[in-house]
Design a protein around this nucleic acid. Structure first.
Lengths: 334, 334
DNA sequence: TTGTAAGCGTTATCAC
DNA sequence: GTGATAACGCTTACAA
């Protein structure tokens, strides 16, 4: 498979490669229709495809941005990625998506690989152990934005849910329905700002309402285990706030295992809307984040940075929305 | 952000860039420990990151492959991607994933973009309208493998489910349970080999068992509509084979809308295992494909092609597996 | 209107 | 052991 280059095109079209380059970049202004035609023909004949690697090297622009998500299995990540891709497409950019699996080491590797690939900017759902690397990025004026989380002390624009508001919304909804026991199920907090904020908001509310907090701790497997124990000890609250979709999966598996009925035995409200919440039996009441807007605005700001426009280094908060379905019932009617 | 190049390193280490290049590529054999040390220091001091774009241009190897999936929302795609990534990682390769949305035009664009980016190979879940482009790829000896589908007359190794066997498995399971009405729900057939095979297998079986076929046609929205009508006319079979996960979602939405009970009112068996099938109420009986193996072997063959090893241009079929849960009940007991 | 030539950051060949 | 130098495929002053 001999690669066709701009030289080959130039030769068959009987022009210099400069002219071909002009043609490729649509600078037709002062080009005789004749040459233009010849070049066009040559390109088709040879089935020429420009080498963007060479172009990037010269231009110092790759027209691609990198996205590093903490865990691609979250519906939130998928939606954010989709929004960013759409935006990038509009700017004639491509996107490389990497999944760091919430592992700072993987995250670091990916960042370095993306830098080596000379991507023009980065959208990151950051883990909490690469402060030094992030500082270096800002010191180098490298275009980066954060999504879903922020890192204390790192001046990078961040786009995320108003977590406090989200928990409040969920909490108040359960309170309104008459619950006096509200538990909170989360993946391990691990210094991740979104999780800290959700947990803190929950603890605060418990305190303010003089309620005993109930929380699980540990990874997905441990959620299972700790709920399992609570059920056996009959210590499970009558209502639960679930911090995200993956945690919800664990809760539902457990509910099934123990033959619990939702909402009769247990009322459930979850952060993050997911397609199946709608047709699950019963429909899951949910506090949804505007993932698409979050991704879109993150992308928009990233491109402002890339194009050296004005932008604000601040934390952008997005309001959640309560979607009522059938997983929460009046406490009285239990 | 001034970019540090190999020249800068060479200068501060007081050696030529050739030597630095040797160092970078771990050809230390004839290098004095002293220079080696100086280079190492310089690299750290300057925080140097090699430019893989330049390297690729020179080497004519980008160490990345492209994956084009027809629809990233299928759990099958996600799993295949994951398997390919894992494999590629082992070969020190990176992966760029593109979602063609089942649109031949998008597919073509992506292929061209990936070629322009000089990826070393391609894994494609092909749509059915780019035969010419695919032929050109094989004519150019460009490394490509297909997954999930194959294209008649294009000599590209293809890795996919034994669809006939999958439908047979589902059909027989329902037959065993005593059903005499078995419907088939699929997305539009559209010349897509996997869908054709599944539908044909279904039709064959109906014929062999002298049963009246019941099929839906049209996109996700139309599935909804056509089932809706069937229910209203009370023409819905007592059991349904659902061709994939996305179609299953539609069926479940509809089931919920009409307040049907599974499996009492309707028995369901679906192709593709998905996490939620396990904890849905009831658990969904499923014919699973070995997505991970499919992706892995596709990747393996792709790298054989890239590395110019021997390989077979043929269709590799994978056996499905029945996973019984609770969405199918004995017909008698209804 | 088109061409010449330098340069982007690497690697490879061949000297020394 | 180390270093010039050309080359990869493209863009872009500048020249003609």
């Amino acid at each position: 498979m001999k690669k066709i280059t701009i030289n080959d095109v130039a030769k068959t079209a009987q022009v210099s490669k400069t002219t071909v380059s002009h043609y490729l970049n649509e600078r037709y202004k002062n080009m005789s229709p004749d040459t233009r035609e010849r070049i066009s023909l040559a390109i088709n004949d040879l089935n020429y495809n420009p080498n963007v690697i060479a172009k990037s090297l010269k231009n110092k622009k790759t027209m691609t941005i990198g996205i590093i998500v903490a865990n691609i299995l979250h519906s939130f990540s998928t939606q954010v990625i989709r929004a960013i891709e759409d935006y990038a497409h509009g700017e004639n950019y491509h996107v490389i998506v990497c999944n760091a699996d919430n592992d700072p080491v993987k995250e670091k590797d990916y960042i370095q690989m993306l830098l080596a690939k000379q991507v023009d900017g980065l959208v990151i759902i950051p883990t909490s152990d690469n402060d030094e690397l992030f500082s270096k990025l800002v010191a180098d004026d490298y275009p980066v934005v954060f999504v879903d989380r922020f890192i204390e002390g790192i001046s990078i624009p961040s786009f995320l849910l108003d977590n406090e508001n989200a928990i409040q919304t969920a909490f108040n909804h359960l309170l309104d329905k008459g619950y006096e026991e509200i538990g909170f199920v989360s993946q391990p907090i691990e210094d991740i700002s979104a999780r800290i904020e959700r947990q803190n908001a929950y603890m605060d509310l418990c305190f303010r309402h003089k309620m005993e907090p109930f929380t699980t701790s540990g990874g997905l497997a441990l959620i299972h285990q700790s709920l399992d124990e609570a059920i056996k000890k009959d210590a499970l609250p009558k209502s639960l706030i679930v911090a995200n979709d993956l945690a919800l999966f664990e809760v539902l598996k457990l509910v099934k295992k123990h033959g619990l009925n939702i909402p009769e035995d247990l009322s459930l409200i979850s952060i993050d809307d997911i397609e199946f919440a709608e047709f699950f039996n019963p429909g899951i009441t949910v506090v949804a984040q505007p993932s698409f807007s979050i991704g879109e605005q993150a992308a928009q700001t990233l491109f402002e940075i890339i194009n050296k426009k004005e932008y604000e280094i601040k934390i952008h908060r997005f309001k959640p929305e309560l979607i009522e379905r059938d997983s929460v019932i009046e406490y009285e009617s239990k």
